[in-house]
Design a protein around this nucleic acid. Structure first.
Length: 582
RNA sequence: CGGGGCGUGGCUCAGCCUGGUAGAGCGCACGGUUCGGGACCGUGAGGUCGGAGGUUCGAAUCCUCUCGCCCCGACCA
């Protein structure tokens, strides 16, 4: 393409609406433009990039036996009612009515549509396994679209579905997909981790989440430095060094602690109670089975609570810290002097039922110090077993960087931010059961098809690729998804010699099978260099003064280094570089 | 849905507090000088100040309502 006629509206300044790096660069490089919150148009550069990503997805899906479909984005409510998700999903689904008043929706995903095809057409185990996929637009009315292409309301997704006659088949299909996913992300130049994840409302037994490390991400991930342990912080655990407590007094002893409000206060002189010798008592109000209930969360003094773990542990749909009045009403003291010893009695006195959940890290601890439920007083010599009525032991603690890996002996955990880029699920028979997709087995029995579902967000890959591959000057596209392999920059378009040499190079490179962008604009060289860096083409050939010596410059965008190359060698040179991986 | 911020030429912003009829830089058009890391000079085009209502002789500016966008939280297969 000739830049002079190609639409690449680059921006010199950061747009006011963009916060994260990938968002700024996508806009500045003329890749996309925003239409509305969470809705973006792909400009020509963006379309080329998306097509590259989609082609990689297609190749790797085909490589594991995938067959590409193209399904409707507009669905009748009926199939969603059959699967039960019409009512299970809330405002996140775009719903509408047709002219006759029939309920319809815009597809957020395609389990229902694929299952509807499967139930009509798949009859026998002999037809299985099937691996079906499509690359299609999806609609989700996100409560909060954000960060450019990271959280969108309409986006492109590669979604694949596998159909097996039994669970063993699904296990194999699942592994095939997981391996394909590894290749896809590696090919796209995205560093990723695979983490255990919960299936959520998708249903099913097992799921793996693929995440890309970036500070723009929304999840926290813990990975082991030496083994392959990786988990979302909502699930991650770690190994703690065992603490041997001294035998304390036969019963807890109360002592005055005027002005002491925090764990740190009590750790200082004159008290000198180490944080890990203290019990942290947090009062929450949890919604359990629709009812609000007070719950005490107990942790070691130096351990932070993870609210999602906490909510999961007690089966709550929501948790919130209790208000100061609620705390005083419940325990008779204010935050800073709270404890679980005798807390149940205190609560009963006000006719409240209190649940006490303690973190595993407190198991078997003795001679601990905690609040006395009396302002400005604490008690010491508390033995968990003996002195506190714990209803439930659970993993409530937030794992931190540097702690020991729970799976291997030598590794430590590293915690970082990441974004979800893919998710694979073993669905099982959730959809085949509810929608009646059955096949006959070899011995003539009718069984529900065992399904898997596998999704990758195209925009998420693009976002992750930029987040992980950029510098102060702009994007640095991985070669696999770059909109152009090479850009030919003619430093001065009015110089006939340069122009001719550039044009010839443009033709020659294209003939060699490369995708070439020719910067033939009537701009100063500096502007062209800045723009080339910004849009991130991996290689730039500068056609300038050295053309007198039959020489051009080859600039490596990533290494930021250039070398002189003779005109006779340049095509071969670039061909070798640009078509090599990564 | 809760909290915060912002809507003024294509872009980035000033003006608003203290009402007097709209500005700068970039970009764009034309002319000239430049020409290897976002040049310079001159001339010019381009804005219902998000929208509606109100107060006022007069509203970008004050008041009310409303729409949109961004950020934090909640939420999120």
């Amino acid at each position: 393409m000739r830049w002079s006629q190609y639409f690449i509206p680059t921006l010199r300044e950061d747009p006011a609406d963009a916060e994260v790096i990938s968002h700024k660069l996508l806009l500045r490089a003329g890749v996309v433009r925003q239409l509305s919150a969470g809705i973006y148009s792909y400009l020509p550069l963006g379309q080329r990039i998306a097509l590259k990503v989609m082609q990689i997805l297609r190749e790797e899906m085909n490589a594991v036996g995938g067959q590409e479909f193209y399904l409707p984005a507009l669905h009748p409510a009926e199939i969603w009612q059959e699967s039960g998700r019409w009512s299970a999903i809330g405002d996140e689904m775009f719903r509408l009515k047709d002219r006759k008043g029939m309920d319809m929706c815009l597809g957020m995903t395609h389990e229902e549509v694929f299952t509807a095809i499967a139930r009509n057409e798949l009859r026998s185990y002999k037809q299985l396994p099937q691996v079906w996929y499509q690359i299609q637009i999806k609609f989700r009315d996100e409560p909060r679209p954000k960060s450019g292409l990271m959280r969108l309301r309409t986006f492109i997704m590669k979604d694949a579905y596998t159909f097996d006659v039994d669970w063993e088949g699904l296990d194999k299909s699942f592994i095939d997909q997981r391996e394909a996913y590894k290749k896809i992300f590696a090919r796209c130049g995205v560093q990723f981790s695979i983490v255990e994840a919960s299936s959520g409302s998708m249903g099913g037994s097992e799921s793996n989440e693929f995440v890309a490390r970036t500070d723009a991400g929304e999840d926290f991930i813990a990975t082991c430095t030496s083994c392959d342990y990786a988990a979302n912080l909502e699930k991650a655990t770690s190994r703690l060094p065992k603490i041997e407590d001294e035998t304390g007094p036969d019963a807890p002893e109360e002592f005055p602690t005027p002005g002491v409000r925090t764990i740190e206060d009590l750790a200082r002189a004159p008290y000198l109670v180490a944080a890990n010798q203290q019990i942290k008592t947090l009062v929450y109000v949890a919604t359990i089975e629709g009812e609000s209930r007070p719950v005490l969360a107990l942790l070691r003094g130096d351990h932070p609570l993870h609210e999602v773990k906490f909510a999961d542990a007690i089966g709550a749909t929501a948790v919130r810290p209790a208000h100061p009045e609620e705390i005083r009403d419940l325990l008779g003291a204010s935050a800073g002097s709270l404890g679980a010893v005798n807390a149940k009695e205190n609560a009963r006195a006000t006719k409240q039922q209190l649940i006490i959940v303690a973190d595993q890290g407190l198991k078997d601890r003795r001679n601990m110090t905690t609040g006395a439920n009396k302002d400005d007083h604490h008690i010491r010599g508390v033995n968990l077993e003996r002195d506190i009525e714990v209803d439930q032991w659970a993993d409530l603690r937030t794992v931190e960087s540097g702690e020991a890996c729970p799976r291997c002996d030598s590794g430590t955990l590293e915690v970082f931010k990441a974004m979800e880029i893919g998710h694979i699920f073993k669905l099982g028979t959730k959809y085949s059961d509810s929608m009646g997709a059955h096949v006959l087995t070899a011995d003539g029995k009718s069984v529900p098809i065992v399904m898997g579902s596998y999704g990758i967000g195209v925009e998420r890959i693009i976002t992750a690729a930029i987040e992980q591959n950029h510098d102060a000057d702009g994007i640095i596209w991985p070669k696999s998804i770059t909109p152009f392999d090479v850009i030919v920059t003619i430093t001065n378009i009015k110089d006939e010699k340069l122009r001719e040499a550039g044009e010839k190079l443009y033709q020659d490179l294209q003939r060699a099978g490369l995708e070439v962008l020719l910067d033939d604009r009537d701009e100063r060289a500096g502007v062209k260099f800045k723009d080339a860096d910004l849009i991130g083409i991996p290689y730039r050939i500068t056609v300038g003064k050295k053309i007198a010596d039959e020489t051009v410059e080859l600039f490596d965008r990533r290494a930021k280094q250039s070398e002189d190359v003779k005109l006779v060698d340049i095509v071969k040179r670039v061909q070798t570089l640009a078509l090599s991986q990564p």
